[in-house]
Structure formats: C-alpha cells, structure tokens
Design a protein around this nucleic acid. Structure first.
Length: 662
RNA sequence: GCUGCUGUAGCUCAGUCGGUAGAGCGCGUCCUUGGUAAGGACGAGGUCAUGAGUCCGAAUCUCAUCAGCAGCUCCA
C-alpha cells in the first residue's frame, strides 16, 4: 500500500503500482495533460544531513509500491519545469547531432541558468554554419513527438551497452565518476539512448522553441590535460514568445557592455600597440577613478589605515621569500635581469612590500593592528584568452591594504573589512551580489598554518558573516587559498558572468618563520607571530569600474559623472551669460562644460542625452535677465528655472548624498 | 594557452559573380540665431588588421601571423 500526500494536504492510497502521471490523471485529465514531472519527497528516507530525500522524477516514473511519499506535480508554470525542458532539449540536440555526424561521441549535456549545452567529441569541427542543419533536424524530432523513456540497468550491463555503442567517454564516466552506483539509468527517445539521471519531459513536443547559440571548446571533465571537446550551446523555452523576449533581452544586455560604453563615452581604452590587457584611463574615466579613490581614501583614514607608497618593481628574491615566485612564474611578466645578474620583477602583488614595511623595525603589540594601505599597481601575465576589457587585465591597481594584528583581533578586523566592502557595494547600489566564504578542507595537506588557528579563524569569519546577515552567503570548503580562509564579494556583469570584486583574506603564510618571519613583542615580553589580513573592497579599480559602467549603463550618479553639468545656449547671443554660469559652477567645484554650437536647442539637448550628462542648464534671454538657469535633469526631464546659487546647492546636496540614478 | 567565429573611415555597418571602396553618425567650414530628444549645404577622412601566395587583376580565394569576441582551462 502506497500513501501519496499532495501539497494541499490531501492523501491518496494505492494498492496497485502507480506512476507520477497516474496520480495526476486521477485528479483530472487537464492536470494529467499539463504535468511534465513530479517532485517526490520520501519522508522515511533521510540524506546525509538528515533531511528527507527529494527527487524530481519524470511523469512516467513508477512510484514505490509501499510506504508514504509526498508528491508535487510540476507543470510548465513551475520554476523547475524550464530546467527539465532544457535538459530534454539538450538530448534532442544530441540526437540531431548524432544523426548528422554519426561518429560523434557524447560527453555531458547539462542545463545552465539560461539554456543548455552538450559536449561532443568529433573530428569535424562544428561551426555556426552547421547550426541551421542541426536545428532543422531538431525540428523534425520535436515534430515526431516521441516519448522519453526511462530505462534502468545494472552498471556493469550499462558499461557493456555503451562500449557496444562506441561511447567511450560515457564508459569512462561509468567506470570512474559513477563507480559507486549499482544501478544507472538511461533515457531513450526513438533511436537515441543516453546515459542520464533525468528527469525528462514526457515527449518532445513540449519543446516549443529552441535556438543554438554558440560553439566553443571545453575539456573532458573540465581538465585541460584531457581531450578537448566541442560544446554546443543553446536555449529552449515552452513557447516562441519567451525565446524571442530572451533574445531581445540578450541584445539589450550587450548594449551595457563596458567595452562598448567605455569606447563610446571615452572612459578607457586598450590598444594592442600599447599592449594587450593594459588599460589606458582616458580623461573621463580617470575622473571616475579619482572619485572612487577619494571616496575609499576617506574611509581608510577614518578607519585607522595609514597610506603608504612602494615601488612597482623590486627584486625577485622578495617574491621567492613570499613563495609566489616561481609558483606563479607562468602568470608573471618575466623578470628583467641586470648586468650583475640581479633580477627585478614587476610586482604581481603588493604584500611583500607591505610586509617589509612592517618589518622595518621591531613591533610591539601596542602597534597592532597596523593597517597599511596603498593603491598598489600590479602586473600579472594573464593568458591571452582570458583578457577582457577592464575586468581581466595584465596591469591593474588594487585598493589594497594589509592589516597586521593579533589572533584576538582577527574577528574585529575581519568585521571592519566586511563592513567597508559592504559600504562600497551599498553606495553603488549593488543589491545583487554573493558572498563566498572559502574554507579549507581537512584532508588536503596543501594548507599552511596551525589547524587550530584555521578552525578559530573560520568560525570567527562565519560568525561575523552570519551576524551581519550577508545576502547569498555561500560557504565553499576546499576553496581557501593555501595561506588562509577568505571572503569574496561576487557580482555579475551584463552577460551574467560572475566577477570577484571585494575580497578579505586571512594569511598565515607570509608572517610564518619559513617566509618573512614576522614578530611582535606581546604584553608578556615574548615574541609572537601576527596574523595578516589582505583586503580590497573594490578589488581593483579596473575591474570595479568596468562592472560599474555596466551596472549604471554609463549613466553614473552625479558624484561620479565625468561631466556633471552642461550649459546650453538658446542662441549665440547668450554665450557670454553661459560663460558666466559656467564659471560660477566651476568655482563651486562642479564639472561643467558648455555647448555654444550654433545649433537649435533641441539638437543640443539631444546631444546631452546621448552623452548621458546628468544635468543641463538651458540659458537664453529670460535666464540672462533674471540670473537663473532652466534646469533639465537626465532622470526627471524639465525642472524649470532656478537661480544659479540654488542650482549649485541642489547639485552639491546630491553629490554629498551620493544619490543613485535609479 | 585551447576550440570556434570575426577583422572595411573615429564609431556602427554595406560592399553581389574577383574588375583597385560606400552609407549613417561623428568631425571641419559656411548658411540659419533658434526655447527643451536630431535645421540646411559643402567638405575632409580608408595601404580594406599584417605578411605571403593564386590570378591579367584580390576587400573578396588560400596559407601564416597579430588582434578582438564567445566559451573552456587558469586566476596569488
């Protein structure tokens, strides 16, 4: 006897075997038609963390004959449904590819946040020219509307089957990745059969709209030493309109691209004649950076940091001591060797210089925490395929600082760093960010430092993060740097790619005796080893600004706008007055320009809109007579006439408040 | 670094079958002197990424190099 509990609390009992779809059919024919899968919870089975086991099952899956299950039927309105659909679409694509290219081997074909992909091993390189043919074949498959059928078999049998089919990658996966499974499942649709956990939609016709989007290389099991596969990306939806609106959205997102906007608004440039990945901050971009620097500098001083400067090039030995050379030699610009054999390295990080600064004299516990800050310019030789506008570059400036403190101070210092990073994100209006706490695992021996201290530090870190109620807190074990646990702040760019901005990292390595052997004399008159914290609320000015450009779509808040006000004359007769207004605004420390072209006022406004100028002042006869300006804001349009002094006050208030443009 | 794609004016792009280049925006000059999202005329501007090759002839076809884009791998 099986008892099925539905989400509304009602119960049904079955003495005969039933499938998910049978339960739906009993409730109503309409629901049965709309049901594409079921979420089944087994209250009697518990997983490792003690929660009841929950599985999403295809509609034709047989429920257990005995016991109690909770069942939630999924229709296309449910959020999980799209993922199931796309997984099936991936199978349909693989089937189409196998029809067109019989020799391909299948690898993995999962869904992504916005679609799906499938990896293939095939001699013939796929290109976008093949998409039409593949899509055509997929259409035929969808039209034929064959069912997805689940088949389970012992693993040994599955290996035999896949070996017969010549699917060696799948065999490899069964032998290594799934070696702990006794039984595995396949999904069959017509002539196509694929090792797959499921679930799937009942049949192909559910796929209302799909599109292949791109082809790229990918390594088998994500390991660059393995064979390279061809990955076909696509997306699928229940209906055409959703697909179309997704594609429009994608086009819109591309318009926010900081590389496009950075060029259009003359914020920065990257020129191969200068060097790939080497950013030139153009005057307008430089203003944004300088404002960011001023903003964070004030915060640093307020929080007891001490500014310092150090050279961007120094002896290689410093990085040999730190351990970063030659470990990261491949991602550094090679050292320059002087005549006497001395080697100098363009610094890939600032910490050794700050450590040397700590070490310039004996330190007492009274000096701690010592917080040394520097907008440190560093260079790293990133792989060419990694370079990306301002977000992945070979030379950048971190809003870096290193805190040297006692074990007891770690928690407070860490909290301070997190708070400053949060302040930065809040000031910019970033609401959608994740915090990733990276901890060590306890099996690997790559980590340095006393395990007890690690435990203490990790607990302190987690406590601080929980206390502060950080959004989307994610704890990842095994992701810590070898020298300590860390917290990273991650935001997405316009295409949904994730980038790490702010970071706070504890370091047990550099202060250790095998590295720089840092010491302080404690209250007990004994030497102790300090803990180091690396932190950068922005991360780097380059990446942060790149993300900021996309975040604001280049329409920056007033305090960051390179051009805050533009004075427009109604005709050339009023150029003299416009220059007076300009001077008044300039003297009030506003960034102001004039548009004195012999153009109509409409054309000048049009230009200012295109240039995303936050405020324009229209001046003509009326304004010149009364000493006023006619104000128009980028956000709210016409605001009417006001005295120049009042306009200045309004803008100064907005700048001081760092008001967001949305 | 790997796989695929792309490279024409400052920008966005067109350029058919191989016959030595075109638009819009922007820029310059002039006309217009105006009231809140594009006034008009004229003009300048290109070794078609670079280098080889095929051909009577290459932006166009082939190869190589460089750079960019998407993804993978990496990211102290």
């Amino acid at each position: 006897m099986l008892k099925v509990i539905l989400p509304d609390g009602s119960e049904k009992s079955y003495s005969n075997p039933v499938k998910v779809i049978d339960v739906a059919a009993e409730i109503g024919a309409g629901l049965a038609k709309a049901t594409l899968a079921g979420v089944v919870t087994f209250p009697e089975q518990l997983d490792q963390s003690g929660h009841p086991v929950t599985k999403t099952l295809s509609a034709d899956t047989l429920l257990p004959a005995e016991g109690t299950v909770k069942l939630r039927l999924l229709t296309k309105k449910d959020s999980e449904a799209l993922d199931i659909l796309r997984h099936s679409a991936a199978h349909i694509m693989a089937r189409a590819v196998m029809r067109l290219f019989p020799n391909v081997q299948l690898a993995f074909g999962p869904t992504t946040e916005t679609g799906f992909y499938y990896d293939f091993l095939c001699d013939k390189p796929f290109s976008e020219e093949d998409f039409a043919a593949i899509e055509e074949e997929m259409k035929k498959i969808v039209k034929a509307d064959e069912a997805f059928e689940r088949i389970e078999m012992p693993r040994a049998e599955a290996i035999g089957l896949l070996a017969d089919m010549g699917q060696t990658l799948k065999v490899d996966h069964l032998e290594s990745g799934l070696s702990d499974q006794e039984t595995v499942s396949f999904y069959r649709q017509g002539e196509f059969i694929d090792l797959c956990r499921g679930p799937h939609i009942p049949s192909a016709k559910w796929v209302g709209a799909f599109k292949l989007l791109s082809v790229a290389g990918a390594y088998w099991k994500g390991d660059a030493s393995n064979v390279q596969l061809q990955r076909l990306y696509g997306t699928a939806f229940f209906d055409k309109k959703e697909l179309e609106s997704y594609l429009v959205q994608l086009e819109e997102a591309k318009k926010r691209d900081h590389r496009v906007l950075g060029k259009r608004h003359e914020l920065f440039m990257v020129d191969p004649k200068i060097g790939g990945g080497l950013v030139v901050w153009l005057p307008k971009g430089a203003i944004i950076r300088r404002e960011l620097e001023n903003f964070i500098y004030k915060e640093l001083i307020r929080h007891g940091y001490q500014p310092m400067y150090s050279p961007v090039i120094c002896r290689v030995e410093l990085f040999e001591t730190s351990g970063h050379y030659p470990y990261y030699a491949d991602s550094q610009f090679p050292p320059m060797v002087l005549k006497d054999g001395d080697r100098y390295l363009l610094r890939p990080m600032n910490c050794p210089l700050h450590v040397m600064t700590y070490n310039m004299k004996p330190r007492s516990y009274r000096d701690l925490p010592l917080r040394l800050a520097e907008f440190g310019n560093v260079h790293r030789f990133e792989q060419s395929g990694e370079l990306n506008g301002m977000t992945r570059v070979r030379g950048f400036t971190q809003d870096d600082a290193h805190i040297f403190c006692t074990e007891d101070q770690v928690e407070d210092e860490f909290r301070g760093c997190i708070e400053m990073t949060q302040l930065v994100l809040k000031t910019m209006g970033f609401a959608d960010y994740e915090v990733r706490l990276s901890f060590r695992d306890w099996v690997s021996n790559k980590y340095v430092g006393d395990p007890e201290n690690w435990k203490k530090a990790q607990n302190a870190l987690e406590k601080v993060c929980r206390d502060m109620n950080l959004p989307k807190l994610d704890i990842v074990e095994g992701e810590a740097a070898f020298y300590g646990p860390k917290a990273d702040f991650i935001v997405r760019d316009c295409l949904g790619r994730k980038w790490q901005l702010g970071t706070v990292q504890l370091d047990y390595n550099l202060p250790s005796p095998s590295r720089f052997d840092l010491k302080y004399i404690g209250a007990d008159n004994q030497p102790h080893q300090p803990v180091m914290i690396h932190r950068a609320p922005f991360g780097s000015f380059e990446r942060f600004t790149g993300i900021l450009i996309e975040h604001f779509a280049a329409a920056f808040p007033l305090w960051l706008s390179p051009e805050q006000v533009r004075v427009l004359t109604v005709s050339e007769k009023f150029n003299e007055y416009a220059k007076q207004v300009e001077k008044a605004l300039f003297d009030a420390d506003l960034r102001v320009t004039t548009d004195l072209r012999p153009e109509k006022i409409g054309a000048k406004i049009f230009s200012s809109r295109g240039d995303l100028v936050p405020y324009v002042c229209v001046v003509g006869g009326k304004e010149a007579e009364s000493g006023t300006v006619s104000v128009r804001s980028r956000k709210d349009g016409e605001l009417g006439a006001m005295p120049v002094a009042e306009f200045i006050r309004k803008l100064k208030d907005e700048i001081a408040a760092k008001t967001l443009p949305f």
